[in-house]
Design a protein around this nucleic acid. Structure first.
Length: 581
DNA sequence: AAAGCTCGCGCC
DNA sequence: AAAAGGCGCGAGCTTT
């Protein structure tokens, strides 16, 4: 049984609170909402108390903000199974509405036996906005027991007036736990290998304030080709002027524009830009700041993107260049078990829309080849461009040209995308499969639209309104796919997390050096990026971990799309060193 | 000097 | 290669 469903059926809660003076307390809540006696806790007693209750009844811990509470538990060696993160759940509930499905999406589901969405106006209720700004950051929400109890009560009441959000709230909260756990464990990082990579590209580490040798050399080549010995290559405006003086007529210094020109300066300049990027984004300064004791610890921000994707704020986990992947290296006696989902988003689209033809194309390991085999388009590349274009709202170019053929071949999937776009263009909200709702358009957007429809509107007003309407349509079109894919990934992660916890503790093998008390002797998640995970595992458990990753993917598919004939094949590797693909 | 902006480019 | 959705981050540059 998928773990999230079990989590959703949790019978009891413990609500944690912290006063401004740092005094801690806990209150048990029954399923009917009855509170038990308040248990005051000293800071030293918190972890032990949590561990006891966790072992006895495996409750759901209700707290203000996972980054505020969980690190101290992990530090004390206490891992919990589930929580309810009030800040994250607040953000979901505050946007959600009980409306006829914001896009009539579920009507397209042929195989979903789930409940239909009741159509009823939302009742007036205690506002969810009392809880402060639902943004990430220290103390962006109150941590007191009083505030937590009141907010939790509001959220329970709000849940009752909205579509069924239990799974989404459980998944979002599980993600919050995982983000902290991954930060605690860290990605095993081979600093020497990273340094070798840097040295091979840039030359040895220069003194502070000095450019690496390779950049100096290539920079001179660029200046020679420009015929300008003092050209500044690091300032785009100055570089544009230098290029123009040398006869290269560019409007920007972006690489795709540069590549359109034939000139001796182009090749060395592109090379220079690559080196500069490597140095500034992932050079020695990055190593010093983000890798300590052989562990890379970026800061993940679960729910940081409106679609439900995670964001990051520090360390750049979302932009880790493929070039640097070889620096990810398992500890001695350990392995990296890496997996990513092939074409997650179109598969999610097929399942969500109940598109049997697209589901059939997705049956094999490669969805794009499947599309070609059904005869919709001629080549795999065409299939990929057409599909991505359809999900992102491309109207011109190759993707726009191929769109009608996809519409004929996959009417359910394309119809759902088109309806989501149309809803957005009219200022409406759309929703993901588990019920995450798109944000309403800004007041400025609405004002712009109404202005354009008033008498006296200029052609420019109308053109601008049409453009911003289409922009919003492209956003809502993509929202339903990106957001539902994020939900699939969360379910995958959460299921994997509990499966990993069920693996036996390693007692006699080598332990993971800097992974924290909880994870040094067991397989643990260390990296997540939209549709990809890396687990750091004792070598003898690597196969079991691979099985767990596959099983969790199957569970996630069935949890989101019960009965859907859409599979989510994984590209799975067991290695000592992560490789650039 | 700090804050906020755009540009360019890395990831999915 | 192309063109579209979502991001973070560093650099230069401008504003406060």
């Amino acid at each position: 049984m998928p773990d999230l469903a079990a989590m959703n059926a949790s019978p009891t809660w413990w609500v944690l609170g912290e006063s401004a003076a740092g005094e801690l307390s806990a209150v048990p809540l029954t399923r009917s909402g009855e509170a038990g006696p308040v248990v005051p806790l000293s800071p030293a007693a918190l972890a032990e108390f949590v561990a006891e209750r966790e072992a006895a009844e495996s409750p759901r811990w209700v707290w203000s903000d996972t980054p505020h509470w969980y690190p101290r538990l992990l530090e004390a060696g206490v891992r919990i199974a589930r929580c309810h993160d009030l800040r994250l759940c607040h953000a979901i509930l505050a946007l959600s509405e009980r409306v006829a499905d914001p896009v009539p999406l579920r009507t397209a589901l042929e195989w979903d036996a789930g409940p239909t969405i009741p159509v009823a106006a939302a009742r007036p209720e205690a506002t969810l906005f009392d809880f402060g700004v639902p943004a990430a950051g220290p103390d962006s929400v109150p941590h007191s027991l009083t505030a937590a109890l009141a907010e939790f009560a509001r959220q329970r009441a709000a849940e009752a007036t909205r579509r069924d959000l239990g799974l989404l709230l459980a998944a979002e909260s599980a993600g919050a736990l995982i983000a902290i756990e991954m930060a605690t464990a860290g990605v095993p990082w081979d600093v020497a290998e990273h340094d070798r990579l840097l040295a091979a590209e840039l030359g040895p580490r220069p003194a502070p304030g000095v450019k690496p040798q390779a950049m100096l050399t290539v920079g001179e080549e660029v200046r020679a080709a420009l015929g300008d010995a003092t050209a500044n290559l690091d300032s785009p405006p100055k570089l544009i002027r230098a290029l123009r003086t040398a006869g290269v007529d560019v409007a920007s210094t972006s690489q795709w524009e540069l590549m359109e020109h034939e000139h001796p300066v182009i090749a060395p300049l592109l090379r220079y830009k690559k080196l500069a990027r490597l140095l500034t984004a992932n050079g020695w300064a990055w190593l010093d700041e983000w890798v300590h004791e052989g562990r890379y610890r970026p800061v993940y921000v679960p729910g940081g993107v409106v679609t439900g994707r995670w964001a990051s704020s520090g360390g750049g986990a979302l932009q880790l260049p493929r070039q640097l992947r070889p620096a990810v290296r398992a500890d001695p006696g350990w392995r990296l078990v890496s997996a990513d989902v092939a074409q997650l988003e179109p598969r999610v689209l097929a399942a969500y829309a109940g598109d049997r033809a697209l589901a059939a194309a997705a049956r094999g390991a490669d969805l794009y080849t499947g599309i070609v085999e059904t005869g919709a388009v001629a080549t795999r590349e065409e299939a990929k461009f057409a599909m991505l274009g359809a999900m992102y709202g491309a109207t011109t170019g190759e993707a726009g040209r191929l769109a009608p053929r996809l519409r004929r071949a996959y009417p359910a999937a394309m119809g759902m995308l088109d309806r989501a776009a149309s809803t957005g263009e009219q200022g409406g909200k759309v929703a993901t499969k588990l019920g995450r709702t798109s944000p309403p358009p800004s007041p400025e957007w609405a004002a712009e639209q109404s202005k354009a429809s008033m008498p006296g509107a200029t052609l420019a007003d109308e053109a601008r309104a049409r453009r911003t309407a289409r922009d919003l349509g492209r956003f809502t079109r993509n929202f339903i796919v990106q957001g539902t894919a994020a939900e699939w990934a969360l379910a995958w992660l959460a299921g994997l997390r509990s499966r990993l916890w069920e693996l036996p503790l390693v007692t006699d093998g080598p332990h993971a050096a800097a992974s924290g008390r909880v994870f040094s002797r067991r397989a643990h998640l260390v990296f997540f990026l939209h549709d990809e995970v890396i687990v750091h595992a004792p070598a003898e458990q690597a196969e079991a971990v691979a099985t767990a990753i596959r099983a969790a993917a199957d569970d996630a598919g069935q949890l989101l799309f019960p009965g859907a004939p859409v599979d989510f094949p994984l590209d799975l590797r067991i290695t000592e060193r992560s490789d650039a693909k």
